[in-house]
Amino acid sequence: MKLWSTSSARSLAALTAVAAVALGSFVGSSPAMAAGTCRSYNYSYGGNGNCVSYIQTLANHKLPTIAGYRIAVDGQYGAATRTAIIRIQQRWGLAADGIVGPNTWAALCSAGTVSNYAGESFTAAEWNAYRAAGC
């Protein structure tokens, strides 16, 4: 005996997803987990979650060349991450405000360390962050 039709099951799944988002119970600590990709959002001091980890990982691709150091990949957008993003923004000729918006995402998503044309290939971890962030 069939209790659910295929269309009923789809409707229930859609309704459940909408309710989860509306009630804030969507799994994940980042708005990008609910819709879109990390690159669809701006991130700044105080942010946290997977998308911040991707920002930190991608920043670490550039930092040794730009600043001579790396930052911890801990998913917390704190002072060290803000300083690192400002260094990258300055080097890339962007507004140095510490906010990871569309232009900073473009820089982070480039394999180039100091410009779109200079750099090396991503490591496996950087490539994973690149894909997961929506680059």
Rank of each mutant, 00 (worst) to 15 (best):
Y77Q: 02
A67D: 13
G75V: 08
T37M: 07
N60F: 09
G78D: 07
C51S: 13
A79T: 15
Q76W: 11
Y43W: 02
I71K: 14
K62E: 11
T81V: 08
Y43K: 01
L63T: 07
G78T: 09
G49C: 04
T65K: 09
S40P: 01
A59V: 04
Y41H: 02
G75C: 08
P64T: 11
G49S: 06
Y54M: 11
G46D: 01
K62A: 11
A67K: 12
A72L: 14
N50C: 01
G46V: 02
Q76L: 09
G78R: 12
N60S: 13
A67L: 07
R70G: 02
N42F: 00
S53P: 01
Y69G: 03
R82H: 04
P64R: 12
Y45Q: 03
G47H: 04
C38K: 08
L58W: 15
Y54P: 03
N48R: 14
Y54F: 13
S53E: 07
Y54C: 13
T83C: 06
R82F: 02
S40L: 02
V73Y: 10
K62W: 13
R82G: 01
C51D: 13
Y77I: 02
D74G: 06
I66H: 09
N48L: 05
Y45P: 00
P64Q: 12
T83G: 14
C38Q: 06
T65C: 03
H61A: 15
I55A: 10
N48G: 05
A59S: 15
I71Y: 11
V73G: 10
G75R: 05
Y43F: 08
A84L: 12
S53W: 00
Y43D: 01
A80T: 15
I66K: 09
L58N: 14
N50V: 04
A67E: 08
S53M: 08
T57E: 13
R82E: 05
G78Q: 07
R70S: 14
T83Y: 11
G75S: 11
T81E: 05
I66T: 05
A80G: 12
R82T: 09
Y69D: 04
P64M: 10
C51A: 12
N48H: 13
S44F: 00
T65R: 11
N42T: 01
L63A: 10
Y45E: 03
Y54K: 05
R82N: 06
A59W: 05
T57R: 12
C51P: 04
Q76M: 09
A84Q: 10
N48Q: 14
